[in-house]
Write a protein that binds this DNA or RNA. Structure first.
Lengths: 110, 110
DNA sequence: AGCTAATATGGCAATATAGCCATATATGAG
DNA sequence: CTCATATATGGCTATATTGCCATATTAGCT
């Protein structure tokens, strides 16, 4: 890899990595509906508030979400709607994987 | 999260995680052109052959790439073209981040 | 069978991540 | 100022990941 390619790949990986966690994917998916605050997300996910806050700061540092304060409450929102289309692509891979498994297991061929 | 939501989020995260590494993003990008074998990719990336093989098996297990043997050589190919569109989305986030940094640093406003 | 080339796998050390608890910080009410 | 609520941060342990080296496996050739 040239320096340029390395830099580019690292940048892309950093963003992907930020989303690559069950709780964070869930957050991105939820924020597509509307903004939510930390405690709402923590409640929905079922993990500690502090852990949720850390997840949100990872997404924020990656430039994936934005935050707005209202009193002591911080609302997070999606910064880039295209992220949803791309989840569609991931779903596509999942569907392909399921089909393949079915084929290997002979489901639908008996 | 309900059991269903948890399962779904874990599935999505598993696929994303598989791609979330500089070398693996690079591989996906390269395989979009055409299939390559392990040693070609190792050479391009500049890492050990064994490490490259492990990266490829991670992508393969996630259902992102396919392999075909020709003699002792194994050619890997992209299984899902939509992955490229989604890299476009990542690029979009990167562009937004750059713009934001410029704004904070006052570039273009003097 | 014996040799070579291409991949894959096991083992290991260094580093990173996820989650919790405890605590710090910040905002608004009284 | 004091208290309560919402977030953020520090510290810690358990676990996972990355990369290399050494070695096993596989396929083709003679």
């Amino acid at each position: 890899m040239t320096e340029d390619e390395k830099y580019k790949s690292e940048g892309r990986a950093a963003i992907l990595k930020a989303i690559s966690h069950p709780s964070r994917i869930f957050i991105v998916d939820k924020l597509n509906e509307k903004p939510y605050c930390v405690c709402e997300l923590a409640e929905m996910i079922g993990i500690d508030q502090s852990t949720t806050s850390k997840h949100l700061s990872i997404l924020k540092n990656a430039g994936i979400i934005d935050d707005t304060k209202k009193g002591t409450t911080v609302y997070y929102s999606l910064r880039c709607k295209c992220l949803l289309d791309f989840i569609g692509c991931i779903e596509n891979v999942i569907r392909m994987n399921i089909d393949r498994n079915k084929k290997y297991m002979g489901v639908g061929n008996n």
